[in-house]
Amino acid sequence: MNHYGDELTLRLSGIADTRLLLDDQALTTFMNDLVTRIGMTVIAGPLVATEHGPPEKAGKSAVVILAESHAAIHTYPHLREIFADIFSCKPFREADVLDEFHRLVGDFHVSERTLSRRGEEWPRDVQAARHLWSGRRTIVVA
């Protein structure tokens, strides 16, 4: 792999079964199952939070911090939609991600999809990476 990692973002629409999209335990289980299936290592989470507001903005957000990066979803049951973001320095199969969503909600269609190769200019040499990182940041010491 000649880049740091892949980031898959999805918008899933026309979700057949929205019952579990407001269920904290179901979403916690889903996030664990998803990252296990794609071979990632959980270091924190899953954390599930409720988004309140009008129906078009209400739902749940779930995130898990991975040794390889992160995975997050945002559910909008009233709109029958889910947004997902999976970023990893370890390769994973998009088909596995979609299969896990099918297990959670049944049928849907992918209305938005982006697969980005992240960090194509990121150096593999640790010293070069440190130089690149420190040269682009201002460090404030309190």
Rank of each mutant, 00 (worst) to 15 (best):
S111I: 04
A71I: 02
A129H: 01
K90C: 00
L12V: 02
G59E: 06
F92L: 01
E121S: 13
R118F: 00
F30Y: 12
A71K: 00
T75P: 15
F87E: 00
H70K: 02
G14R: 06
R117H: 14
H52S: 06
P54H: 10
L98T: 13
L104R: 00
A16V: 07
V42T: 15
L98K: 08
Y76M: 08
T18K: 07
Q127M: 08
F92N: 04
I38F: 06
D33E: 05
D23T: 10
E120K: 13
Y4V: 04
R118C: 00
E112P: 03
R124P: 06
R117E: 13
L20F: 04
A44V: 10
R19K: 10
H3N: 14
A142R: 05
D85P: 13
L104N: 12
E121F: 11
A84G: 02
V97Q: 04
M40Y: 02
L132C: 12
P77G: 13
I38S: 08
R93Y: 09
R80F: 00
A67T: 11
S88P: 10
L34Y: 10
L20P: 14
H109G: 14
D23I: 03
V35Q: 03
C89T: 11
L21Y: 12
E120T: 14
I43Y: 14
R113V: 07
S13R: 09
H78E: 09
L47V: 15
A16N: 10
S13K: 08
L21T: 08
V63L: 07
H70T: 02
R93L: 10
V140N: 04
S134A: 14
W133Q: 12
D107Q: 08
I73C: 10
V42A: 10
F101K: 05
H74K: 05
D125F: 07
L47M: 13
S88H: 10
L132H: 11
P123N: 13
R80C: 01
H3Q: 05
P54S: 07
L79Y: 11
E68I: 00
R118Q: 01
A71C: 09
G45W: 07
A95D: 15
F87Y: 15
L10A: 05
F30H: 14
Q25I: 11
A26K: 12
P55G: 11
V140W: 00
L10S: 09
R124V: 02
R103N: 15
R37H: 03
E81T: 13
G106D: 00
A84H: 06
I82W: 02
P54Y: 07
V35I: 15
V64N: 04
E51K: 15
S69F: 04
S111A: 15
M1W: 01
A72Y: 05
V48I: 13
R136A: 14
R124E: 08
G39C: 01
H74L: 09
